[in-house]
Design a binder for these strands. Sequence first.
DNA 1: GTCCTCGTACGATAACCATCGTAGTACGGC
DNA 2: GCCGTACTACGATGGTTATCGTACGAGGAC
Lengths: 117, 117
Amino acid sequence: MTTTTNARVLEHPTRDQIRLEEVLHALADSVRLRIVRDMARESTELSCSYFDLPVTKSTTTHHFRVLRESGVIQQMYRGTAKLNCLRRSDLDALFPGLLDSVLAAADAQDGRVGETG
Amino acid sequence: MTTTTNARVLEHPTRDQIRLEEVLHALADSVRLRIVRDMARESTELSCSYFDLPVTKSTTTHHFRVLRESGVIQQMYRGTAKLNCLRRSDLDALFPGLLDSVLAAADAQDGRVGETG
DNA sequence: GTCCTCGTACGATAACCATCGTAGTACGGC
DNA sequence: GCCGTACTACGATGGTTATCGTACGAGGAC
């Protein structure tokens, strides 16, 4: 079935459906936290292949889906690529300060662990 | 072996050993988030049995251990009871604003979901 | 000493999850 | 139409976790 229907519709939770526990769970994985940090740093739409992750592509797909379904990121297709961006306004509206403090904490922890130099 | 050694010593991570991912994971469970919120509200040492949780005692023990080993709470024995308190100063020093934003987010979500009526 | 309460340890179990490999679909270039 | 790139779907797998029940230990009350 070479369906030409653009079935490439990605399910996202609405703002009201975003749950704190799921967001925390999404951020509690080091691979996903790294994705989120990269996205916050670039602050533009990035394709999945932009990220150089220490896992295979299928695992990458899995992590992006967890992030999307928890409401942390938004994904959209553009040609063969899939663009990702943080749902900053939604997260900031629901959980003021949460994302920023997580990002700052991750940066601070990198400094503590001392992988940067 | 009825060892009378006070082996009732509880392992806690030092401040430097606390890892953001583990803290987020600890907070990403609804039972544990509830415990943390109750502790933050009372802001005093509470025994495990203070909390009216929808799980059995052994599961409660498990959740308290996860919270302790991730560095979120401190536990100490006093007689037959075990007292718990948040490691606020450690968490605030490592992850400024994180705990407060999580607590505020949990309160806001309660308001949204409207279970308080 | 005898009980009671509080919490732990251990084993079991079922669910979840991070990971992979392979096979497949969607889209753009030629 | 054909191929390559980007990503997905599916099945498998091994590890972690949330849950329970039962049996046990530690300390206080009597």
